[in-house]
């Protein structure tokens, strides 16, 4: 890639101007004190939303998300100080011309569209209320030289993130990159780092991971096995009567019951065999196996009835 070096000098006194002149906004000459508007062609404006949630509140929210019934002793302990992240989002104002507007309709319509310009699954950005984040008060021009927050620049182009609607002509367009605030809280436990991401405007936990104590899962696993053990322990003649009663209720009930029992056994085995972590994604909390290989079709079939509930089997209600 060829790069062009441009000397940034004050048009009045010739003194060097700071490098942030390459971004749109105001810049003051340090020598003569004149203020200039920097208007680089084709570069969208950048602004930044300050966090509305204090680091203390973000830390409290993270601690609440990390607390769950299967947590190992001593977790989460004392977390590190929260770190401020700013993630880029596109905000675009467009005036569109509708191709076939009715006689009593305005042929022009003005729309505002917003979309994240960045994606990373471990930040839980699907849970972020982008409208609320960008409408928060105190939005100010982005100043790259100030602040110690980490900045996550856009990686999606405007056309990719916010494409214009098909079949209409864009008459006017103004795009802006707005950085929305997030708090990242981290704690360390037995050599591993566990993160929680908190919305810097609403204060909600967007994403959090927490360890799960293996021995704490044993009791749950045994409880899961109890119905299977009771059924297997029945005298043989009772199996037949239970089966007949089930068929009388519904012809498919024995099949569903067998699939359910297979699912219970499979889930119990997973609980004992694999490492798990507690994962919070917005309002949902779930227990996820970490080193579990992909499900076989038999396992998939066995767990099918539980997928109706859209949640892993027997997730403890810790939140």
């Amino acid at each position: 890639m060829r790069r062009r070096v441009v000397q940034l000098a004050c048009p009045t006194c010739g003194a060097a101007l700071p490098a942030r002149t390459v971004l749109p906004g105001a810049v003051d000459c340090g020598a003569c004190g004149n203020r200039y508007a920097s208007l680089p062609a084709g570069v969208p404006t950048r602004s930044l939303v300050p966090p509305q949630v204090s680091p203390t509140r973000a830390q409290a929210a993270a601690l609440a998300a990390w607390r769950h019934p299967l947590a190992p002793p001593g977790f989460p302990g004392r977390p590190e100080p929260p770190r401020l992240l700013h993630v880029a989002a596109w905000e675009v104002e467009r005036t569109l011309e509708r191709p076939r507007a009715a006689a009593d309709e305005d042929p022009l319509v003005e729309v505002r569209a917003r979309a994240l310009a960045f994606w990373r699954p471990e930040l839980g950005l699907t849970e972020l209320d982008l409208e609320a984040a960008l409408d928060a008060p105190g939005r100010r021009p982005f100043e790259p030289a100030t602040g110690d927050a980490a900045l996550i620049d856009p990686v999606r182009t405007l056309e990719h993130a916010v494409p214009p609607p098909p079949g209409v002509r864009v008459v006017e367009e103004r795009a802006e990159i707005v950085f929305a605030p997030l708090w990242k809280v981290r704690c360390r436990h037995r050599g591993d780092a566990w993160d929680a991401v908190v919305d810097g405007v609403g204060g909600r936990v967007l994403f959090a991971r927490a360890p799960v104590e293996r021995s704490a899962r044993l009791g749950v696993a045994l409880a899961l096995l109890l119905p299977v053990a009771l059924l297997v322990g029945l005298p043989t003649e009772h199996w037949r009567s239970v089966g007949e009663a089930a068929v009388r209720t519904h012809p498919f009930l024995p099949l569903l019951a067998l699939a359910g029992l297979a699912g219970l056994v499979s889930e119990t085995w997973d609980r004992i065999r694999f490492r798990h972590e507690w994962r919070v994604e917005g309002p949902r909390a779930s227990l996820l196996p970490l080193n579990r290989p992909d499900e076989t079709w038999l396992e998939w079939m066995a767990r099918a009835p539980f997928r109706l509930f859209h949640r892993p089997l027997f997730v403890p209600r810790g939140r």
Partner: peptide, 20 residues
């Protein structure tokens, strides 16, 4: 492109950062 960002009549600094 750099433009002086003061009012040409009263020299008050203007809010130009929003790039309207």
């Amino acid at each position: 492109m750099l433009r002086l960002a003061r009012c040409p009549r009263c020299a008050t600094p203007l809010d130009v950062a929003a790039a309207r």
